[in-house]
Design a protein around this nucleic acid. Structure first.
Lengths: 191, 191
DNA sequence: CCCTTTCTTGAATGATTAATACATAACTGG
DNA sequence: CCAGTTATGTATTAATCATTCAAGAAAGGG
């Protein structure tokens, strides 16, 4: 009954996410996006409304993907210690592999200038990490892996903060040792 | 022998630093700067060369000021624990007072897109924090405030990472409790 | 095979950007 | 008080920005 879209919207969001991730909001021009997505501006605005809306959509996608990864790692059969270690290690590796990316949530929080819709998402993302960690820590505590006098939520907030910190020093190109020293020290908080 | 400049360059750098700090590089237009500094574009380019050069100069100024503050707090007569606690607490307070600012170094690292001159400064700043903390921790260790089996540099890297993390979650508007939970957990690393 | 609907293409829009040019004004050594 | 030097203010530049618009193309029901 109608002409069908020639590109896949979800795939386009993923590609846009990658571009925003590496170059930031201001650093990604509409031309960059059009070229990366191989579409014209008409299609772009018909599909996404505006650059800002696509950014927010990309950010939502990012938060969803990261949350899924985190949940999977923390929910895998391993104990809480190797699981947390794996979470932190994979961040360090990611920063070493591609230092230009960092974390889209962190990038957003420093670039959005307090814009409500972006700030709200940043807050949501941080709270998501906090609660995924808190749940995992609580389960570990019930299994006896963590001393009963620890507060899982407090520990989760601590680890969330360390995660954000690692993402920052990772972008500062301080080298693997730096982040690994921070990691090994942070792990002692679980003891 | 010549006409003298009508504005104070150092003061102008301070004001520009404040603007870049709150609004970011891309978010601060030349017009914004000219208005804030109350000068014309001719004077601007004569004095600073370009927007980018002024940004780097503002960043240098920021790093210098922050380094001085940190050195002062860590060098004050207090023990290492209250000193470190004060450093972290003041960051939390700053984020609560003015969440739009955050840390200019962190902001730069996520906004510069890997530009060498900016990345280099970010690296320098992180290493500066690391070594100021490492020196203070080493002195504290010699005074017997810190157990001799600790590695001051490792601890310094950990605290540096926590500092960056606090700056991020502070901008995420997660509230005072969040950062304070992270702070109190982090302090145990010194025990 | 045509009509309706939706998508695509590409040019045009006006706003904003950083940066420059130039005439004028201020200051000082001689 | 004049000459030389440097700062200032304004107007302008060329580029780039996100967005809109209109005309043509694809698809499927009747």
């Amino acid at each position: 009954m109608v002409r069908i879209r020639e590109f896949d919207i979800d795939q386009a969001v993923d590609r846009a996410m990658d571009l925003f991730w590496r170059r930031g909001y201001a650093g990604t021009s509409l031309q960059d996006l059009l070229q990366e997505l191989s579409i014209g501006s008409g299609s772009f605005y018909a599909a996404f409304g505006s650059k800002e809306q696509l950014y927010l959509r990309s950010l939502d996608r990012y938060i969803h993907l990261q949350g899924g990864d985190l949940e999977k790692t923390l929910g895998g059969g391993a104990g809480i210690r190797p699981a947390v270690r794996k979470v932190l290690t994979s961040l360090i590796e990611a920063d070493l592999t591609d230092p230009a990316r960092g974390c889209l949530v962190v990038n957003t929080s420093t670039q959005c200038g307090g814009q409500p819709s972006a700030t709200e998402r940043v807050n949501t993302a941080v709270r998501q990490v906090e609660s995924l960690l808190a749940d995992a820590l609580e389960r570990a505590q019930m299994r006896g892996e963590i001393s009963s006098d620890k507060d899982p939520r407090k520990l989760a907030r601590f680890l969330t903060t360390v995660i954000q910190g690692i993402r920052v020093v990772g972008q500062a190109r301080t080298g693997r040792e730096f982040a690994e020293d921070a990691l090994s020290t942070a792990m002692h908080a679980l003891d």
